[in-house]
Design a binder for these strands. Structure first.
Lengths: 210, 210
DNA sequence: TGTACATCAGTGAACGCGCGTTCACTGATGTAC
DNA sequence: TGTACATCAGTGAACGCGCGTTCACTGATGTAC
């Protein structure tokens, strides 16, 4: 039974939305087309009327996930206080760890991406690059741009690793999981403004490095 | 046809070995029992004579992978120069990125672990903890132990994120992939000895933070 | 040491199941007149 | 505006396939005598 153009567009959006959530929750290989279609209130046949393959849906769901994630980031950016602090509090947190379905696609599917097709992995790389740019833009401007970019890259890589490890250990070692987040949050705060921030009180012993 | 106890033990070891490599290459869910058995020169029936389930094999393969990985770490540790430098050069490198089958299980399966059973995820947490301890042991001793542990946690989390991202982007954006490794390698070098190392030449402008 | 036999590691066919994808069909939509 | 009909989004049965696991069987091993 045919359906309004408008309704059809809604259905497509519902598929993308459901796919994004389920892919983030269970992994791209772990969520099936039947489950996704059902979550969108449709049958799998409808999915294939809208997308040529599961891969194509995955690419679109990934792109949409990034879009929403950046919207969240912008909302958080100027929440009072430093933008970097806001970003890190948002990204490296128990809230982000526990929000599989709604979290950033970067952190959810990183280690699966290498096994996906080119379209999917290219979208991932774009999202990563954008995320790095967002962080770079709010870093202290003191040192050279190259240095700033390196720190932004390291911050995002560390954030991804932190959430991945925190999720992997959350069930069997909840304390350890929290500890990872706290440690990474603190160290990244320092990395983000290291070159400009005065040394912490206690340090200052200056043996030359090795 | 029955087989020597010795031969049986060899077969078991071959299964664990093959499973470890294939799980790291394709993911735990991505490598099948048929493929693993074949790689070990056996049939899947033999696998079930040795292990009650694929999960049990996965747990053992993970433990074995950590064992081998720590042996590599120890070999690298006293390779001349600073131990931390040796560790980081080993862990955050294109070599590690490109060595799926032989690399560290931590970096290979992080984001899959949360979806595996308790035995598997507990083994993962143990391996992570050990890795953190190894790093902590070679960090500068200047600041408090709590601070040292936090930096060790952050270093391992960042290393895992760096390898994961580098692998995810290696095919579609090889330059970006390399860039991530270089950036993380450098920043972690600083994190590993931050509190003690004299400020880099160019920095030193000391506006107070924010 | 030689013989009889229970053990059990390993084989390979078969199991039910869920996967991604295809396809004949339906029937409301939206267009042509 | 009203009618006739082509379009095509969505349905649901069916496809081949590979998955993890089971099981009846084999036959060399290793033990008991």
């Amino acid at each position: 039974m045919k359906v309004t153009k408008e309704k059809s567009a809604e259905n497509r959006a519902a598929l993308v939305q459901a796919a994004g959530q389920l892919f983030r929750e269970r992994g791209i290989d772990g969520a099936g087309v039947a489950e996704i279609s059902k979550a969108a209130g449709l049958t799998h046949g409808a999915l294939y009327a809208q997308f040529p393959s599961k891969d194509a849906l995955a690419a679109e769901a990934l792109a949409q996930g990034f879009k929403e994630s950046f919207a969240d980031m912008i909302a958080v950016k100027d929440d009072g206080g430093s933008s970097l602090t806001n970003y890190l509090d948002f990204l490296v947190s128990t809230g982000h760890r526990d929000n599989l379905a709604g979290g950033c696609p970067l952190t959810a599917s990183t280690s699966e991406i290498a096994r996906q097709n080119k379209t999917v992995s290219a979208r991932f790389a774009e999202g990563f690059e954008q995320m790095v740019n967002a962080i770079e833009a709010v870093l202290d401007k003191t040192p050279s741009g190259a240095d700033r970019r390196q720190r932004a890259l390291a911050i995002i890589a560390a954030e991804i690793g932190a959430i991945a490890v925190a999720r992997a250990t959350a069930k069997s070692r909840p304390r350890l999981s929290n500890e990872v987040l706290i440690a990474v949050r603190r160290v990244l705060g320092e990395v983000g403004s290291e070159a400009r921030r005065p040394r912490r009180k206690k340090a200052a012993t200056s043996r030359s490095a090795k």
